[in-house]
Design a protein around this nucleic acid. Sequence first.
DNA 1: ATTAACCTATCAATCATTCAGTAGAATGAT
DNA 2: ATCATTCTACTGAATGATTGATAGGTTAAT
Lengths: 229, 229
Amino acid sequence: MRSKEGGTTTSKQDKRVGKIRRSEQTRRRILDAAALWLNKKGLAETSLQDLADEVGLQTASLYYHFPSKDALIEEVLHKGIEIVYEDVRRALDALEPSASYRERVRVAIAAHLSSLLEHGDYTSANIRNFPLVPENLREKNLSIRRQYGDYWRQLLQDAQKAGEVAPNVDLSLVRLFLVGAMNWSTEWFNPRKKSIDAIADMICSMIFDGIGPKEQRPSDGGQKRVTRR
Amino acid sequence: MRSKEGGTTTSKQDKRVGKIRRSEQTRRRILDAAALWLNKKGLAETSLQDLADEVGLQTASLYYHFPSKDALIEEVLHKGIEIVYEDVRRALDALEPSASYRERVRVAIAAHLSSLLEHGDYTSANIRNFPLVPENLREKNLSIRRQYGDYWRQLLQDAQKAGEVAPNVDLSLVRLFLVGAMNWSTEWFNPRKKSIDAIADMICSMIFDGIGPKEQRPSDGGQKRVTRR
DNA sequence: ATTAACCTATCAATCATTCAGTAGAATGAT
DNA sequence: ATCATTCTACTGAATGATTGATAGGTTAAT
């Protein structure tokens, strides 16, 4: 997020050290407004006029901060996955190394859902708009999307290697299926009905144990088997 | 599909009995073109100009067949779910009454996927555009969507009553999860990689048996338990 | 001769974008 | 401390292109 461009703490003749550049603020406000509108109305019904109104500017002023509408949208979309990716990775990194893979998957699901449904509009704006956004806007998104996909792939592979996923299971289908189901949650999620953690729990046991009737299964308490080698 | 309006076989002064009205054909072609564009480009980038070009008409001519763009889009969207709903119901009705619920679910999944990925653009146009389409276009869709949801709800409830789904499973989450995952398949499905039937099979056993390692599970052959009372 | 099916021409509205300007803050020179 | 200059952040007006939509005319089949 604070990576590119020297930005606030530039070296040469930037006297306002601790202060944030004024334009940085409105730039951010424009992006926020765009994420909001993209998420609520979709790209089809998000005009620069709408964004300018939301921020309290003239449409022409947006061009001081962004070279084009496409560039603006692109940045919102990029932030979208970047945020999910970071959230999920951070959540997994925070786990103890002894955590089972089942627990890891559960945490990853919860983090993805939380990022999608609670943390602002960027993530959901991305997920909801990406499928039908013009190709030229998608291009810059593809690389980081692939990275995120690989991250999940790796997680599931490790789980399988550790014996926590049956060896005959097609991981790529599991991944697509799981991510798809999570992404679709923007369409039905209602925070007053069920918490994200509860949903993540249920999805996890559904994925691992299935919904079929259990036969004997000696009720070993479940997740604390710590199968690492 | 053939419900409203007397249509082709009207009573009074309609001489061409077996023949299809000329306008019916082009009307259909317009709808087809709309479904195609909606699916490929999305509503944002589907203009009446595009549709007219695709069909070989002038944009003004579209207004002979439809009162407005909204009405045209609405009809495409409506046909969308209508088709899935019918496909799934037909597939289930074709099963022998002795079929297990697991088999029923498998067939329902296959039918939904097939309708979504193989049978023309209407279904996928609906699924992909609905989330971000303006509200006034969604209204007429909601009723039939709810019906289709109820249909799945009923199927899963029956399965649970019959003992083929564990009693403690939250069916509404299963349904939302399953439908979401299926609907997302438009984003990744590749017919050359895996057939729809194969995918349906895998999803089904994933949902019922889970991906976790199997313990003893006496390999009873599976689906032929016929639990109908 | 009537009607069904489509066309030409045109409409106002909205779209993203450009450009010339400007108020006010920051800067530098005195 | 004062004044002139430069730069930042924005405005106002206008651009051409495209949008959905309307009105009136034309053709072809019955």
